[in-house]
C-alpha cells in the first residue's frame, strides 16, 4: 500500500488520541488502535516507512510507529 495512505490514516488516529490522551500517552493509544484494527502487512509497511524516516507522520504517529515496530519485532516468528 502507498505510504501516503497509511500515513494519512495514522495521523488521523493521532488527531483523535492526542487531545484525549495528551501528547505523552497518545502514541501508545495510537499504536494499540493499529494493533487492534490494522492488518499486519499494513503495520509492516507503516514501520518500513517509519524506518525510512517517517516523512509526513505527525509526532504522535511517529512515536506510535516506533511502538508498532517493537510489537511487530516481538511477534514475528524467527526464521
Amino acid at each position: 500500500m502507498h505510504a501516503e495512505y497509511l500515513v494519512r490514516m495514522a495521523n488521523q488516529i493521532g488527531d483523535f488520541f492526542v487531545p484525549d490522551k495528551g501528547e505523552s500517552e497518545a502514541p501508545a493509544a495510537i499504536a494499540n488502535h493499529m494493533q487492534r484494527f490494522w492488518e499486519r502487512s499494513m503495520r509492516t509497511q507503516l514501520v518500513a516507512h517509519w524506518n525510512a524516516g517517517g516523512a509526513g507522520l505527525s509526532p504522535a504517529a511517529f512515536k506510535a510507529a516506533e511502538i508498532v515496530a517493537a510489537h511487530l519485532a516481538a511477534t514475528t516468528p524467527k526464521a
Binding site: 495512505y5 490494522w38 492488518e39
Partner: peptide
C-alpha cells in the same frame, strides 16, 4: 490478528 477492511482490500 485483524484482516483487511474493504477499503484496505482495494488498496
Amino acid at each position: 490478528e485483524p484482516g483487511l477492511r474493504i477499503p484496505n482490500m482495494f488498496e
